[in-house]
Simulated scan of single mutants.
Amino acid sequence: MTQGTASPPRESYREVVARLSAAQKSGRGAPAYSRFVNRPLGRRLAAAAYLAGATPNAVTAASGACSFAGIAVLALSPRGWLVGVVVAALLVLGYALDAADGQLARLRGGGSPSGEWLDHMVDCAKISALHLAVLVSTYRASRAGDLDVLWCLLPLAFTVVASTAFFAQILNEQLRRAHGVESARLAQGSSPLRSLLAAPTDYGLLCLVFLLLGSSVLFTAGYGVLLLGSAGYLALALVKWYREMGALGRRP
């Protein structure tokens, strides 16, 4: 009587997390929260999804569902401390799942063009929708007498800054890949100091600022500081990126 070949032992959760840690992609250009908090959190969610047999696209869908649920609560609910906690929790979970889908794809042997497209489309939609939800929330607060209606200009400006930064990031990656320099750039890594300097642009930090939603004054102040930091960082980065793209055009 012949015996069947024994199946390989199933990896434990801890082993999957360790394998992901060893294969972590470069942190170059990633701000502090995204690099030191969100990626480790996403790694653990990716390991759980892998052991559950979930696909990267399913994790992307879960990320979008959490993020847009938080955005809906923000736009449709009156401001308050509990609402702020709910919004922040949903956005933080959505962001962690956003980090998990790519890590899950690497565990399963690599991502797909359709998966990358879906991930970027969800990111693009949520970035604009979040600031437009802040606009709705700010307008509602102004109607209640908590703020002057002119503060509605802040989320309008942040929508432009955030969408421009996201488009530039994606375009830069594609142009570098087309000229064969993206892999070498990522291999250089990034210092923790650079991650801290990029903190105002961190989507994860933006998620946390909604914890201040119980006070319109505190929230507007925190949101405004992030807007100023993001706009200043983008202005400097655009100059650098333009010169970098010009150098790519002169490569042999």
Rank of each mutant, 00 (worst) to 15 (best):
P9V: 13
S137I: 02
Y223H: 03
A69S: 12
S137W: 04
S67F: 13
T138Q: 00
G84E: 05
L234N: 03
A32W: 12
G29K: 02
Q169A: 06
R243N: 07
S128Y: 00
A141M: 06
P113A: 07
G84Q: 07
L45Q: 15
A237S: 15
A231N: 01
L132M: 15
S26T: 12
T60H: 09
D98C: 01
G53A: 08
M1E: 09
P56E: 07
V17F: 09
R10H: 09
L175C: 09
A144T: 08
A46S: 12
I127A: 12
N172Q: 07
C152L: 10
A32C: 12
Y95H: 13
T60N: 15
V37S: 04
P113M: 01
S190P: 02
F36R: 06
L248N: 08
N57Y: 08
A54Q: 14
S21I: 06
M245W: 15
V181K: 08
V239K: 15
V149T: 13
G53Y: 04
V217G: 02
E116I: 15
Y13S: 05
V17A: 14
H179C: 05
A187L: 05
A75H: 02
L74T: 02
L20G: 12
L150S: 10
V17N: 11
M245H: 14
P155V: 01
Q174D: 12
G229D: 06
L132Y: 00
R251W: 08
V134H: 00
S7K: 12
R140S: 10
D98Y: 01
R106Q: 08
G84R: 11
